[in-house]
C-alpha cells in the first residue's frame, strides 16, 4: 500500500456533541482512512476529540465514530486487552487501542496533543483501521497449534509437574492480536514468513511436556519461511500487549531445531 497523502481536518459533526467532562483536554486524533468503495488510496483525517487523561485510545475512536463520523471503521470487543480485536499503530507503534491511555501519550504540558492512528502493517487493509486477518490466521493454523498425543488417553488428567507447566506459561498468554507479527520487518517484506505469533503458538506446544508433536512442528518451522527468517530485531517483544518474550520464544525454537537429534 502506498503512503497516505491527503491530510484533511474533519468538520463533519453529527449533531450536538455530548457534554465535555471536567478535566478534559482536546486531542487531535489523526486517523488513516481508506474505504476501497470510495477511495483510490489512503488519506489522513483529523478529528478534535475531548478526552480525559484516563481515557483509552479506544474511547477516542468511539467518540469519533459515535459523534463525528459514523463511517470510521475498526474492530473492538472486550475493551480491556483480552480479546485482541483492536490492534493498531498508535503513534507509530503497535498497540491495542483499549490498553493505551491518553495520559501516556500526552507530551510536555499535556494541554494539546496529536495522536496518530493507522492500521497494523503488512496485512491488506479492508477499511480504515480494519485489516484482513486471514493471512495471519492461516500462518497460525499451519503450525499445528493444538496438543498432539499418541496412544491411549488416561482416564484422569495427564500428570504435569508445576515446573513443566511453567516452562511454556509465557506463550500461553497469546491472544492472536497480531501486534507482534505486524511489527516485524521481515513479515513486512516477505509476507510468506510465518511471523512471530505463529511461532509463539508453536512454542506453546513444543515445550509442553504432554505434547508429542514437536518434531512435526519443528519440521514445519525449519522451512524456508520458518524461524530462520527471524532477524532478532525485538520489535515483536516490544509490541506484545501481553508481555510475552516473543523474540526469546523464537530463539528457543531455533535452539530446539539445532539440538534435536
Amino acid at each position: 500500500m502506498t503512503a497516505a497523502t491527503v491530510d484533511r481536518v474533519s468538520s463533519g459533526a453529527r449533531g450536538d456533541q455530548p457534554p465535555v467532562p471536567d478535566g478534559a483536554v482536546t486531542i487531535t486524533v489523526r486517523i488513516q482512512r481508506f474505504n476501497p468503495e470510495t477511495d483510490s488510496e489512503p488519506r489522513w483525517e483529523s478529528f478534535g476529540v475531548p478526552a480525559l487523561p484516563t481515557d483509552r485510545v479506544l474511547n477516542l475512536l468511539h467518540y469519533v465514530k459515535w459523534y463525528l463520523d459514523g463511517t470510521l471503521t475498526f474492530r473492538r470487543s472486550c475493551a480491556h486487552g483480552i480479546c485482541g480485536s483492536d490492534a493498531m499503530q498508535i503513534n507509530g507503534v503497535n498497540r491495542l487501542a483499549c490498553k493505551v491511555l491518553v495520559k501516556d501519550l500526552l507530551s510536555g504540558g499535556g494541554k494539546h496533543t496529536t495522536i496518530t492512528v493507522a492500521p497494523i502493517k503488512g496485512l491488506p487493509v479492508n477499511k480504515d483501521l480494519l485489516v484482513d486477518m486471514e493471512p495471519f490466521m492461516e500462518a497460525f493454523r499451519a503450525v499445528k497449534p493444538f496438543l498432539i498425543t499418541y496412544g491411549n488417553e488416561p482416564t484422569r488428567e495427564r500428570i504435569q509437574s508445576a515446573a513443566d507447566r511453567e516452562r511454556f506459561d509465557d506463550t500461553t498468554k497469546c491472544i492472536l492480536c497480531a501486534c507482534c507479527t505486524t511489527s516485524c520487518p521481515v513479515f513486512w517484506n516477505e509476507g510468506s514468513y510465518f511471523g512471530p505469533a505463529a511461532i509463539v503458538n508453536a512454542h506453546r506446544f513444543i515445550f509442553d511436556s504432554r505434547d508429542e508433536g514437536a518434531e512435526e512442528r519443528l519440521d514445519i518451522l525449519n522451512d524456508a519461511e520458518g524461524v530462520w527468517r527471524c532477524r532478532t530485531t525485538f520489535n515483536c517483544t516490544d509490541a506484545c500487549p501481553r508481555g510475552i518474550q516473543v523474540t526469546k520464544a523464537i530463539q528457543e525454537v531455533k535452539r530446539a531445531l539445532l539440538f534435536r537429534r
Binding site: L147, E157, I159, S161, A162, D164, R165, T172
Partner: peptide
Amino acid sequence: AVLDLEKMGLPFNRTPEGRI
C-alpha cells in the same frame, strides 16, 4: 468436562503432585 479440556491441551495450574 474438566478432564476433557485437560486432554484437549488446556494448561491448568498444577498441584505439587502434578494434578489439576
